[in-house]
């Protein structure tokens, strides 16, 4: 478990980091809880680590207005320590509680996890369901990418090699929305075999809106169409019908833990359970 040799640079400021990031073979280190294990297995052998873990500019949760801005360097622990964030986006807290273990949540950062883009990690689905926008910056400028356009494949994102994820902007949640995260975990890793994040609105007893995102199912987290539930009362049959096609067009993973058939089935189960739970919390 000894990584190949590498250089290490600790960025002193954001400007410093953006100057250093483009160099060949450089990999950005935040909390390190995804990158370091890969390096210890020598699956990743970066020539240089650029440590942005100390940058105050990347930390913090800003809840001014009705949305939120979360610094990419904010740890999972810090997310959980914000009751205001949990109040506005209970989905974040619910999913974050299931990430890794205490040590991972203490060190791991939301931006690091999103930029790593593990196909089974939780936060990408949460970001998709909440309609997040990712603010990126490079030495040459800044741009914003919608979560839906950010995840481009397994462990790959829209980030250019000289870009850093700076923060995440969340729009105001729909009024009186219910949110839920339902994950069916692989017992060894704790990663999702299939997990669903749902945001549901209703009027009286009728569902008026559903945003559903799935993770663990294919090569990346994705928004799935569950609009069939809109107009229903959310009874089992209606939800079952609404989630029947959530893996349509997705190249579903099969591995030693779950066959394609089983994972597709679980995707429908967690989708339905997340919507039902979110519905019960709406209004």
């Amino acid at each position: 478990m000894i990584p190949a040799s590498f250089d290490y640079v600790r960025a002193k400021s954001l400007r410093d980091a953006l100057n250093a990031i483009g160099t060949d073979g450089t990999k950005v280190l935040a909390g390190g809880h995804s990158l370091i294990p890969m390096m210890r297995f020598r699956l990743a052998q970066p020539g240089r680590l650029l440590d942005i873990g100390q940058l105050a500019e990347l930390k913090g949760i800003d809840l001014k207005g009705r949305g939120a801005r979360i610094g990419a360097g904010t740890s999972y622990r810090e997310l959980l320590d914000s009751p205001e964030l949990a109040e506005r986006y209970p989905l974040i807290a619910e999913a974050t509680r299931g990430i890794g273990d205490v040590q991972v949540r203490n060190r791991g950062t939301i931006g690091g996890g999103l930029a790593h883009a593990d196909p089974a990690s939780d936060m990408p689905a949460v970001m998709l369901a909440l309609g997040a926008t990712f603010n990126l910056r490079s030495k040459g400028g800044k741009r914003s990418v919608a979560a839906a356009d950010f995840f481009t494949g397994a462990f790959t994102t829209a980030l250019a090699s000289d870009e850093l994820l700076i923060d995440i902007a969340l729009p105001a949640p729909p009024k009186k929305a219910g949110m839920a995260y339902a994950s069916f975990e692989q017992k060894a890793s704790g990663y999702a075999i299939a997990a669903a994040a749902a945001v549901v609105t209703k009027s009286r007893k009728t569902i008026t809106g559903v945003t559903l995102a799935l993770t663990g199912v294919g090569d990346r987290a994705y928004l799935a169409d569950a609009s069939g539930a809109v107009g229903s009362h959310g009874d089992d049959a209606a939800l079952e019908a609404a989630v029947a096609n959530v893996t349509k067009g997705i190249d579903v993973n099969g591995d030693i833990h779950a066959s394609v058939e089983y994972r597709s089935h679980l995707a429908r189960v967690v989708a339905r359970r997340a919507i039902a739970l979110a519905l019960s919390r709406a209004g």
């Binding site: 297995f41 692989q186 017992k187 060894a188 890793s189 990663y191 030693i256």
Partner: peptide
Amino acid sequence: LQEIAVYSDDGQLMTGTMMDYAVPKASQ
């Protein structure tokens, strides 16, 4: 309920780390 060492047909251990070999956790 959960522990199994899996080999592929060509003899690769598919459960070579704790990410794939499900050692019981207290919560389970």
